[in-house]
Amino acid sequence: MTQPPAPRVLLGHGTENDFVVLPDPDGTGWPEQRLDAALVRRLCERRSGPGGDGVLRVVRSRHVPDAAAALGADLDRCEWFMDHRNADGSHAEMCGNGIRLFLHVLLAEGLVDRAACEKGVLVGTRGGPRRVGAVPGGGYWVDMGPARPFGRGEARIAGRTFAGLAVSMGNPHLACLTDVDLDALDLTGVPAVDPQLFPEGVNLELVTLLRAGGEGADAHVRLRVVERGVGETRSCGTGACAAAFAALEARGAGSGTVVVDVPGGRLSVRVGDGTTVLTGPAVLTATGVLTAEWLAG
């Protein structure tokens, strides 16, 4: 009897926010009942599995059971769906670093062509449709949609309380501008936040303003981020957008471009015209197969 091919797996990152990527264009390799929370957690384990901050399944929207609810009237416009899972196995709405890597994989796998990518491709996510495109000369941009403030709150972590702006980027954020030494903070814990403001948890950004601008930008910030369901990560695309919005808001500006330094590299965020646009790199680091021995473990 012919054995089915071993399932392929790719590894990659966007500013060191890294993912296990599962190519599954026709939805036959990793259906929902197979890619359950327990398997996602095993895939993200860094010592006993491939390892990553999350899992991205590259699949056509029509094969994702909840795509219609997430995309509504835009379902037919989104051929591809970024089926994103957090490291704890939960579904995630949106990830700016992940969706850049997602487009990079579509290109590397020959599923879209470069010309279409430079114009922008509409990709489905659980946070709604997002347009993402290739930058001539390298890198990727993604229209992240509008940053929507929804109040102010506090987070307690590392023995300190930080006040910040609650911002929705399709997922919830608390962006806290602070002058503390970010390098001195122990961010291994889970932030304590107001459950009424953040009933489903929150991504916490601790942000310091470096200078008024630079590189043609209106502001330059540095951040560390603790993602819900993951812990501290090297980068967070939606977090960079929330931080940029909060930095501009603190200066009384409704629009502008912000350079955002994260532990894993540098991103650029443009806020204006009713949306935010995130630009940064995406890199594939490895490709291989999951062995029968590991899958049976």
Rank of each mutant, 00 (worst) to 15 (best):
R8N: 07
D183K: 14
V289D: 05
V142Q: 00
V105A: 04
N171L: 07
T161Y: 07
T208L: 03
G231S: 07
L210C: 14
L209F: 10
G128V: 04
V283N: 09
V123E: 03
G138Y: 06
V221A: 06
A68I: 04
A253H: 15
L267C: 04
I99T: 01
G272Q: 11
P146W: 08
D218T: 00
G12P: 02
A240F: 05
G264C: 06
G72L: 05
A219H: 05
D88M: 09
G189W: 11
A243H: 05
T188E: 14
R156W: 08
A87Q: 12
C117N: 00
G52A: 06
D74G: 01
G98N: 03
R46G: 12
L71Y: 11
Y140N: 02
T279Y: 12
R60C: 06
G54S: 10
V167E: 10
E293F: 05
L22K: 07
D143L: 01
P25R: 11
G264E: 08
A155Q: 08
V277G: 05
V167T: 04
G72A: 10
A116W: 06
G153N: 13
A253F: 14
E215P: 01
G96N: 12
H63R: 15
G159Y: 03
P4S: 02
A175L: 12
T15M: 09
L187V: 12
V258A: 10
L106G: 00
L290G: 03
P149I: 09
E93G: 15
A242H: 10
V55R: 02
S235N: 01
A70H: 06
E200K: 15
Q33P: 00
